[in-house]
Design a protein around this nucleic acid. Sequence first.
DNA 1: TGTACATCAGTGAACGCGCGTTCACTGATGTAC
DNA 2: TGTACATCAGTGAACGCGCGTTCACTGATGTAC
Lengths: 212, 212
Amino acid sequence: VYDVNMPYHHGHLREALVDAALATARRDGPDAVVLRAATRAVAVSPSAAYRHFADRDELLSAVAQRCMSHLADVIESRLAEAPGGSDPVATAWGRLRAAGRAYVEFALSEPGWFGTAFGAPAGPPVPSAVAPGSPFQLLNELLDDLVATGALPPEKRPGAEYAAWAAVHGIATLLVDGPLRHVPPAGRDQIVTGVIDNVVAGLSKGLGVPDG
Amino acid sequence: VYDVNMPYHHGHLREALVDAALATARRDGPDAVVLRAATRAVAVSPSAAYRHFADRDELLSAVAQRCMSHLADVIESRLAEAPGGSDPVATAWGRLRAAGRAYVEFALSEPGWFGTAFGAPAGPPVPSAVAPGSPFQLLNELLDDLVATGALPPEKRPGAEYAAWAAVHGIATLLVDGPLRHVPPAGRDQIVTGVIDNVVAGLSKGLGVPDG
DNA sequence: TGTACATCAGTGAACGCGCGTTCACTGATGTAC
DNA sequence: TGTACATCAGTGAACGCGCGTTCACTGATGTAC
């Protein structure tokens, strides 16, 4: 993919290094992101990396950002193919559920990326997880839609983003890496459904609206 | 604490090594658990560790188990001092909330231990997190109590343990390590309360019982 | 159009580090007679 | 009660490893005149 016959002035070394590290992270998680390995993969000397990154953490942060936007992409594409029925309230709940499922499924199908997205140093006060276009922003939009359609009473809106995020993030980490990692796929599905059901039940309490 | 004048036949080397590693894990998390460092802390040669542990992972697992039981202890002691009012239903919900808060507070006050408890290799199919006396078992008992007092309809019991666990575990990891790590303490408290409220709301949906 | 030169993006060798693990060993302990 | 000996729990030196990072360097590129 990259021009091999160009020992000097590689041209896309930064991107190439991030891509290489991304592949490693995918297989083996954030700890496997190693400067020397990335330069090796791109057939470049170790010190070349320092033209593009101050240190290893900067490379890892770049990789983590890519992982996070992969997650956002998966959620968005799942939302794009979500069924939009005639009932806007049911549709809005369905979209929230779909996003939650997508989040957990990403974690399970790409554990390395998922772990990297959240396991990075990322010093800045506004981590990529909550930046514009992030999964968290997507979630907020879905909740706003619920309020707009009247599905969610405005007074239940504050904090709803954390309730939803915590639930899917929690079950994802427990299933991927954690004590539930040995639960077979069928059981996983049921558990995830139950967790999402309870989030929706909590948000819609007193409305009697959605339950399936 | 350990007998220093005993180069040979230390007597409690295994325990001493675990204690040393536990102190490291407390400060710097699971990755900081290092065999050589532990032996250094106990003033013993590196190879001595291999009398007691097959390899580094075995030491780390021992440490992780201790971390997990610290978590269980904190929850249990919090439950012990939970107010037991005259209303058994309210009491049962209050205990569930208290356990949830304790879980998150442990994560925040002992991030190293929390991370170690859940970040270990722990190959076995029944990880210490779900073993007898574990936080997970505690949770199951609390939920059974809710059913026993009539607070929770039996048909909502299955899966409730995952809904509750996912929520508190998720918010804990997001706040401790994750993208919410820069939220100030006051905001954290509000977020945690909201998350727990939503779990309870979800479980008690259709009952109109608890909301505070 | 051709040449001098600054800049840029690489090279490659070296640094110090600490790790997990192995090995042949040895000093202390306790048991059998 | 005293001695021989097996066992047990340590020692200490060494192994190979790969890492992040620095340094003086050099080849290619593009710009000014």
